[in-house]
């Protein structure tokens, strides 16, 4: 009799603990969204011009490139890897696309055909990088760093120090035009997000990536083709970097290796602030969307607030640290890699 009472009490405690755990997880998954909303409210009250239609379009425009980059990296991070190739590869794609369309440096004028061409090049390079990591058993961190350096070198070689100014009217329209009031670059980011969402939530590929990130050994045991899945992640990453390179060239109106600078770490920050675990298996593209907007809103508001440039980076860092502390699950049982 006593034994039965004891067993049912343990069962209740366990159920309560599970309930608490599930409530906590639900709260943690909502934390990034709450943080974003709180930031928007605070900055709407304190920053002149923040809550305006002009600034809304600004935020959409400024979030577009970081969002596509972050979406590319989300799948890499979800499976527990890291990739740094975007800096060099994105700069290379931006430099090359500027040389392939109507420009100030040469007579090549491939027009819109240049875009799929350079995106394919980006996918090819990323596939090579992936193969080195998967087949060569080399850490993705180091492989991608090497690939980034190589592509930076090729980028500089491509325009030999004098960047090509883009004269193609298509690029001008892409930079300045809008559809339904939303800038074209933002539409590209929205379409990329929808594809990423479908990939993650409506395909086996998305489930496999989560499984690999959660526990690669178990994923292998249940018959998931680890190498093939990883390879596809690098194809997706290459696609996103290619799009980002083109978008960068569109935005600045010229092609230089600088297009790739400051792409990687802000993107990783967006992914993590959004609540995706760096060790893999937790989070996803919706988190990344929120994370990208948190980072963009902070950057935007600090200028609108007129924060001195001498302390701006420090303030930015503090806000991001605070956001990460609130949005990423942490506790004594969590392994921090």
């Amino acid at each position: 009799m006593d034994k039965q009472v004891h067993t049912s009490r343990v069962g209740e405690e366990f159920a309560q603990e599970m309930k608490k755990q599930s409530q906590k997880e639900r709260f943690m998954s909502l934390a990034p969204l709450i943080i974003l909303l709180v930031l928007i409210v605070i900055f709407s009250v304190t920053a002149q011009g923040f809550f305006s239609i002009n600034n809304f379009y600004n935020l959409l425009n400024q979030a577009a490139i970081p969002l596509v980059m972050s979406l590319g990296l989300t799948f890499v991070i979800l499976m527990g890897s890291t990739d740094l190739s975007a800096e060099g590869l994105g700069g290379f794609i931006g430099s090359v696309v500027a040389l392939m369309v109507l420009n100030s440096k040469n007579d090549m004028n491939l027009g819109a055909f240049a875009i799929p061409l350079v995106v394919l090049i980006s996918i090819g390079v990323s596939m090579l990088s992936g193969l080195l990591h998967i087949k060569g058993k080399l850490p993705s961190f180091m492989v991608s760093y090497g690939v980034s350096s190589i592509m930076s070198g090729f980028a500089v070689l491509s325009y030999r120090g004098v960047p090509a100014r883009i004269r193609d009217p298509l690029f001008t329209v892409m930079a300045q035009g809008n559809f339904l009031g939303i800038p074209y670059l933002t539409w590209i980011a929205i379409v990329t997000f929808v594809i990423a969402y479908i990939l993650q939530n409506r395909t086996r590929f998305g489930s496999y990536v989560m499984a690999i990130g959660d526990n690669e050994a178990i994923a292998k045991n249940i018959g998931i083709n680890i190498e093939w899945t990883k390879f596809k992640v690098f194809v997706w990453l290459g696609l996103c970097i290619g799009i980002v390179g083109v978008m960068g060239a569109v935005r600045v109106g010229q092609g230089d290796v600088g297009i790739g600078s400051d792409l990687v770490f802000p993107a990783i920050t967006s992914v993590v602030v959004g609540g995706t675990s760096l060790s893999g298996g937790k989070g996803g593209v919706v988190h990344t969307l929120i994370g990208a907007f948190i980072v963009t809103v902070i950057n935007n508001a600090l200028v609108l607030l007129g924060v001195s440039p001498y302390i701006q980076q420090a303030v930015q860092g503090l806000i991001i640290l605070g956001a990460v502390a609130l949005s990423v699950p942490h506790g004594k049982n969590l392994i921090v890699k």
Binding site: G49, N58, N299, L304
Partner: peptide, 25 residues
């Protein structure tokens, strides 16, 4: 009106100018 640092970077300068235009009209 304001003083910001663009770190010699084209992209940062672009974002800062967009923000100024939103702030000051």
């Amino acid at each position: 009106l304001d003083d910001q640092a663009g770190d010699w970077d084209t992209g940062k300068a672009l974002n800062i100018t967009e923000n100024w235009l939103a702030k000051y009209g």
